[in-house]
């Protein structure tokens, strides 16, 4: 659905996006992760034909950015970084304007459908400016969906929202995802990317890495199992030392941290060995690295 090849954007001498190459499939929720100033908004603006690339090329739904811009605009939805509602106009009026601009066949029907979906039908005559931040953001997402685009671009959809409003918006995104749309979501919130996205790219001017959230964890750290013992773990380290399938072994206080490729197969044996060596096992668990660890490692590497 979205393919880019060495897509770049230069502002004067400053390179905001440097040779980005991506392939995003249909129905995928793709997280574009990066710190402030990474070039996320610039990338979204290029892909939605608001600004032109200075180098490289991109196609969206088979249409070429810069050539078939009008077709792309017709077929994608965009939630901009700031919602940019007409605050003085009612929710109904805001959506109606956009439905008309997007040439929606049944304007009143489509507007009503989304206002009801958002639970805003009763408040349709209220000025958009009177809505809470979270509601406004949902209204802005609905505005981007009026023409039922196959691809939805969401630029930091939960930035600046309080946790409750952010959850409201995130749940709405999950609903949209369930309808099978392709979503390109930028965020600097790792937890959000982890929860919403099928794949994530860590990006900071250049593409650092791209994988599923789970894949990223494995790639960076492998899989790790922790054994919590009742007393200090050091004496039991030799018990497991020379097993061929263990990649790494570490004893910290009362914990044994074991890195191995296939814990499902080998954990039972490890437990048996430890128990027969006299260890009192309290818990066994998998150590999950948060996306944050990975992200920080990648972003700071540059």
């Amino acid at each position: 659905m979205i393919d880019t090849e060495n897509l770049s954007k230069q502002f004067g001498s400053h390179t905001a996006v440097d040779r980005l190459t991506l392939h995003i499939g249909e129905g995928e929720v793709f997280g574009f992760l990066g710190p402030n100033g990474a070039g996320k908004t610039t990338t979204v603006r290029m892909l939605t034909c608001l600004i032109g690339p200075t180098q490289g090329r991109a196609t969206v739904m088979g249409y070429e950015v810069g050539k078939d811009s009008q077709s792309i605009r017709r077929h994608v939805g965009l939630l901009t970084e700031t919602p940019g509602m007409y605050d003085r106009l009612s929710a109904l009026k805001n959506l109606t304007i956009y439905a008309e601009l997007y040439e929606v066949p049944d304007v009143p029907g489509q507007v009503e459908k989304y206002l009801r979906l958002l639970g805003l039908w009763e408040r349709r005559q209220d000025a958009a400016g009177t809505f809470s931040k979270g509601m406004k953001q949902k209204l802005a997402i609905a505005r981007a969906l009026l023409h039922e685009p196959k691809i939805l671009f969401l630029d930091e959809p939960t930035a600046g929202l309080d946790p409750e409003a952010a959850k409201l918006v995130r749940d709405f995104i999950l609903e949209v995802k369930a309808q099978g749309r392709t979503i390109f979501l930028t965020t600097h919130n790792l937890d959000e990317a982890d929860r919403l996205c099928d794949r994530v790219a860590v990006f900071n001017q250049r593409l650092r890495v791209i994988d599923t959230p789970q894949g990223l964890r494995q790639e960076m750290y492998g899989r790790q199992v922790v054994f919590h013992l009742a007393d200090t773990a050091v004496p039991y380290q030799p018990t497991l030392q020379n097993l061929p399938y263990i990649n790494r072994l570490e004893a910290i206080d009362n914990k044994l941290v074991v890195a191995l490729d296939d814990p499902e197969t080998h954990n039972p044996e490890l437990i048996r060995l430890l128990v027969s060596a006299g260890a009192n096992i309290q818990f066994v668990g998998e150590l999950r690295h948060s996306l944050e660890d990975i992200y920080l490692r990648l972003v700071n590497e540059s």
């Binding site: 608001l50 009008q70 605009r73 965009l78 901009t80 007409y86 956009y98 601009l101």
Partner: peptide, 14 residues
Amino acid sequence: ATRSLEPLLATPIT
């Protein structure tokens, strides 16, 4: 100033 220009320009208006 109200940031409504960007979503507006993203629509297929000439």
